[in-house]
Every structure is written in structure tokens, then in C-alpha cells.
Design a protein around this nucleic acid. Structure first.
Lengths: 247, 247
DNA sequence: CGCATCTTTGAGAGTAATCAAACGCGGTGG
DNA sequence: CCACCGCGTTTGATTACTCTCAAAGATGCG
């Protein structure tokens, strides 16, 4: 039987795919990641208003960043996949202006701000890589905003699925067009600025058309080219060093 | 008569209000800003797909960043006021994934990426300030996204006006609740994900209620507290070092 | 087996888009 | 000085997308 592929650290996969980080800087960064924790789904890593003193790395699982409105509604502004540094921005922001929570049982690693700040003071190249990382984040926000503002609901949903698939593929979590996407339709709705009822109807339409199926957290894309077409998905904004990994 | 207040450089006002930059770093940065240019309204500073080799500083005028959709519609993702470094992110991004254009006659200063990169390699403190700056940008995107996804149209418009007023106030461009906002209602619509017809109707409603008037690029806010209330405007996400400047 | 969570369905209501046309104002040129 | 022109704004009528509310099915976990 074929041996399982060497399990590469997701952070390594992630950073290598979006930056030209050196092995040396990578090792230095990884050496700070000793403090790890397993958490359940629904764990709030940081909350709006917090003054965090450390950043976290998502090793396994799934997370999202969101803001809560006064009427109780929630806008999810980002999904995070393994390898992401979801709250890296807290390094340069006193106060969190949004929250971060897991959507699935997850493993987190923590890096104290102090250590990270010292590391960046010593290593300009690494600093540039991490800075670039936060900027790519903001690129994704821009794309998301554009979807919220100007894309019709089906295209918006398709685009979100394309993005998440692409990012999961980078860290090796997509197999034959299938992936576990541990979110509910209500979570998708919160990300898309739609109601969950409407999301449900669009998903049914997609399924009826043979485009994809999303049931019980298992996402199966049957027709990636057409999905990309509906989404008008252009992965440029992910700023990958190599061309996209699905096609 | 009272002497006019000393005209401070807008970049200085801006950076001082959002970071703890030192005078020394500030001078170093300013010394790179020699290359200046006056441009007309509608000038495209950088375009989606470009590979810029310099960043710009908006000295006077008004600009916006936007993405164009295949159907010709436009999503404005940010407005830029004097003192902003609207495309600082291009320093760490090979390709622009959105465009930047002026909305009013403006004066720009350019800084080559080379020079800026060298400066950041030498000055970790300055790097942190600029990094922070790009992160605050991304905070504003998050707030904007939340508005697009979850705020009703009137609240969304009110929020945008609050933000722009607050940021103009920082650089001293608001006087007695009045400011020149050099955008059309169609521009506002492109920023808000609404049609210009709808924006017009909301503005009329605001005017009828005595909340504000926006005519021929002159914005007059009559009832700032109520505007903030409608917008649920909480300036935390602007990450100002001092509390907000209007109240 | 029972409960909690998540998904699905239907009906009715509203918000905002679209289309089309008129209006107002400032600038230009005769 | 007036007529015209263009940009931006305003208006009205119609359409349609999406939400809300309410309730019924599924599914999986304990």
C-alpha cells in the first residue's frame, strides 16, 4: 500500500504558499508555538473588546471571525482554516474590534506578543512575511465586501465556497472535490449577509443543478468549472505564490 | 483677530492620531515624499492588475479604492482622505487586486517601494507603525463589511457619513459640522451596495428629518448625536490614540 | 428513545432594484 | 446675456429579490 504523505505542518504549507519565508525564519516562528490547547466547537478565542497579549495559530479545526450587532445578528467576516494566524492583527492593535471563535473542535497554538515582537524586531524578512500575511487577509476582506455589496446571492454563495475550497486545498484538506466544511447553513448565512432560509434554498438549487451538495458538513463539488463561473472566482486576491491548487 | 492655526501636514496629523510614531521616524518618512504631483478628479493612481513600484500619499483632495465587476458595476471599498497612504499595501503585494482613483482634484506624493523597504529594514518602530496602519485599514473594511451584510440601508449610509466625518475631522477638514465631501450620490451608492436612486431617497429622508443635508458636495450635519445613534457608530474600530474628535 | 440542532417548506410582507423620464444647476460658447 | 449642454439629482411606477414568521421534517447524540 502507498504510504500516507508526510504530514506537513499546516502553518508551513500556508506560509510557503503565500510568502517566500525562509526555513530559518519559519523555524524561529515555529519554536514559539509550544503552548498548545485543544478546544471544543464554539470556543471563543478572543472577544471584541479584549486586549490580547498573544496571538494564536489554528492547527486543526475551523474558526471564524465575526462582529455582533446590537440586534443580536452576527456578521461573519472571515473563516479560518488550519495554518491560519486568525488574530495576528492583535499584535499591533490594542483592542480587538471583532471576535474569534471555533466552529469545530480545534487545536490551537499560542504565541505571546512579546516573543513575536522581539522576533520581528530582529528579523525584517520574517516581519515582511507576516505583514504580507495581514495584508492578504485584508485582500480577502475586500473581495468579500465586493461580494456583499454587488454580487447576487447565488454568486455570493458560490464565491464563498470557491474561496474556502481553495484555502482548504492549500493545506491538503480537499480530496476529490470533497471536504469537510464544519459550518451550518446559518453560519453561511451570517457570512453572506443572507437569511439561513434563503441560503438553504440556494443550496437546494445548486444541488438540483448537479453543481454541488452540502449536507451534514460534507461539501462535495461536482462541477468545479461551473462553480467558478457562477462565482466569477479569480484567485488573484489570495496572492498565492503558485497558481491555485484546484482545477 | 485670532491667527489661523499652524497648518500641519496631513500625514503627520493622521499618523500621530493612530500610532505612536516618533518625530524621528516621521521625518525619515517625510523625507522620502519629495516627488509630488497634482492630478485631476477621476485620475487612476493604480489599477487592478498593476504591479506598482511605489506607494502614494494623499496630500489634498479625495480618493477611493474600488473593484469593478464584470457587469460594469463598481464596489467602492474605501474612501481616502488627506493624510492617508491609500496603497501602502502594495509594498507587500505583487499585484494590485483593486484600483485607486481620485474623486476630486488632488495632490499626491510618491514614495518608491525600494526606499520604503530600506527604511523599514532599518527602523522596526516605524515598520510597526506602518504595519499597524494597514491593519487599521483592515479594521475599517471589517466594519464596512458588517454594514453591507447586516445594516439596513439608512443605518449603513449614516455609518459611512460618520466614519468619513470622523476621519476628515482628524485632519482638520470639518468645520462646525460642515465639510466638503467631494462625491456624488452615485459614488455613495457604489460604496454602500445600493442603487443611487435609493441613496437619494434616504438622503431626502435624512434632510426632511433635519438630520443632515448633502447638496452639491457640501455635507452639513445638523444632529450629530442622532446620526451616530442611527448609525450605531462606535469609533473603536478606527483605533485612534485619542478619543474621537467630533462630539 | 428522546431531545437538541439543523434543515426544509410555505405563505405573506417589505425593502430595494430597475426603468424611464424630467428637472436643476453650473459652465461654455455664441 | 442668453441658449445650450452635461452632469447629477429627483420622481414615479413597476418588478423582484430576500426576509420574516411559523411549523414540520431530519439527523445525530446521549
Amino acid at each position: 500500500m502507498a504510504p500516507a504523505p508526510a504530514p506537513t505542518h499546516p502553518l508551513v504549507r500556508h506560509l510557503r504558499s503565500t510568502t517566500d519565508i525562509t526555513s530559518d525564519d519559519l523555524d524561529a516562528l515555529l519554536s514559539l508555538m509550544r503552548d498548545q490547547q485543544d478546544v471544543d466547537k464554539g470556543y471563543e478565542v478572543v472577544r471584541e473588546g479584549d486586549h490580547p497579549t498573544r496571538c494564536c495559530l489554528l492547527l486543526t479545526g475551523f474558526a471564524c471571525r465575526y462582529k455582533l450587532m446590537s440586534d443580536g445578528s452576527r456578521q461573519i467576516v472571515a473563516f479560518n482554516v488550519p495554518g491560519d494566524l486568525p488574530d495576528l492583527l492583535s499584535l499591533h492593535l490594542g483592542v480587538m474590534d471583532h471576535s474569534l471563535a471555533t466552529l469545530a473542535p480545534s487545536r490551537l497554538a499560542y504565541v505571546p506578543h512579546d516573543a513575536l515582537r522581539q522576533l520581528t524586531a530582529e528579523r525584517p524578512k520574517l516581519t515582511a512575511c507576516l505583514w504580507r500575511q495581514t495584508i492578504i487577509d485584508s485582500s480577502m476582506f475586500l473581495e468579500w465586501m465586493t461580494g456583499l455589496g454587488r454580487r447576487a446571492a447565488p454568486s455570493r454563495l458560490a464565491h464563498l465556497i470557491c474561496e474556502v475550497m481553495a484555502r482548504l486545498a492549500i493545506v491538503g484538506l480537499v480530496d476529490e472535490g470533497q471536504t469537510i466544511l464544519p459550518v451550518t447553513q446559518a453560519d453561511l448565512a451570517d457570512a453572506l449577509g443572507l437569511s439561513y432560509v434563503h441560503v438553504n434554498r440556494i443550496l437546494q438549487e445548486f444541488s438540483r443543478e448537479g453543481l454541488l451538495d452540502f449536507r451534514r458538513r460534507l461539501l462535495t463539488v461536482h462541477d468545479w468549472p461551473r462553480l467558478k463561473e457562477i462565482a466569477e472566482f479569480d484567485p488573484t486576491y489570495l496572492h498565492l505564490m503558485q497558481p491555485a491548487t484546484i482545477d
